[in-house]
Simulated assay, not measured.
Amino acid sequence: MSFSIVLDNLLYLLLAGWPQGALGGLALTLVLSVLSAFLSAVLGLGFGVLLVMAPAVIRYFLTALLGFLRAIPIIMLIFWFAFLLPVVLAVNPPKLLTVVLALSCIGGAYLGHSVAAGLGSIAAGQWGAGLALGFTRWQVLWQLILPQALPRMMPSFVNQWVSLVKDTSLAYIISVQEFLYVARQIDGKTTGAFSTEIYLFIGIVYFCICMGLTLFARRLEPVLQRAGGKANSLA
């Protein structure tokens, strides 16, 4: 098996037309992944906190919304953001923004329940101890409960981030030149048929990225556990 087709087109696979043209390829996949992971983490944290702290009416509405987002396919949400928003709101967002928003909304929906479960796993006595120290309920959450709960949430965050890396490949449906889209371009122009070498290379790269995320999370977990232990000792 020869990987000459990969080596001959390696720069295009990594960057697409950049710097003369738009950024694409693996670089664009990484950009989409990082932005989506950050926004989904922010949304997930916000959703999870509201599921625990908000009044009952808001919790019921939010639970229904998150259930809806988790139930629909990501590809459908990308289509909605890309083609429905211009019709309904008379706005025409960039394609990259529509992909990031779609991935972040669904990722945040999944993480919201994980965050709520992580917060709920902390013993109720921790809340009482924090309130007895004179903290408000929100101060107890941010200073005592959340630092202890974060290590427990980490596997869910990592799993979701790994999923987001793979889900960026769905951007091809609206012609965003991410990694897989560029690979298919090269495959079509050079072989006119299925190229085992290109798609094997794509699979290896995705594996390395996802494994790197997993190893990073394992290195980060002891740091979060130490922070959680300090918060527990304060209580």
Rank of each mutant, 00 (worst) to 15 (best):
M1L: 09
S2N: 13
L7N: 09
L11S: 15
A16K: 09
G17F: 08
P19F: 09
Q20N: 12
A22F: 03
G24Y: 08
G25H: 03
L26E: 11
L26N: 02
A27L: 12
L28Q: 08
L28F: 12
V31G: 03
L32Y: 06
S33K: 06
L35Y: 11
A37M: 08
A37G: 14
F38P: 04
L39S: 08
S40L: 05
L43N: 01
L43P: 02
G44D: 05
G48F: 10
G48C: 06
L50F: 07
L50T: 06
L51R: 11
V52I: 13
M53F: 10
A56P: 10
V57L: 12
R59K: 15
F61V: 14
F61A: 14
L65S: 08
L65T: 12
G67T: 10
L69F: 15
L69K: 04
I72D: 06
P73T: 12
L77Q: 07
F79K: 04
L89R: 05
A90G: 07
A90P: 00
V91Y: 05
P93D: 08
P94R: 08
L101Q: 02
A102K: 07
A102E: 07
S104L: 07
C105P: 01
A109N: 04
A109H: 02
S121M: 09
I122T: 04
A124L: 07
A124K: 14
A124F: 02
A124R: 14
G125K: 00
L133Y: 09
L133M: 14
T136S: 15
T136K: 06
R137M: 06
Q139L: 01
V140I: 04
L144N: 10
Q148S: 02
L150A: 13
R152I: 12
F157T: 12
V158T: 15
V162M: 15
V162N: 09
S163W: 11
L164V: 15
V165N: 06
S169D: 11
L170H: 02
L170G: 05
A171M: 05
A171S: 15
A171L: 05
Y172R: 06
I174M: 05
F179N: 05
R184H: 08
I186L: 11
D187V: 09
D187E: 15
T190P: 00
T191K: 08
G192E: 05
A193C: 00
S195K: 03
S195V: 06
T196I: 13
Y199M: 15
Y199V: 09
L200D: 03
I202L: 14
Y206V: 03
I209C: 00
C210Q: 02
C210I: 11
F216H: 02
A217I: 01
A217V: 03
R218M: 11
P222M: 04
L224F: 13
L224S: 04
L224P: 03
R226V: 10
A227N: 10
A227K: 11
A227Q: 13
G229Q: 15
G229R: 14
A231I: 12
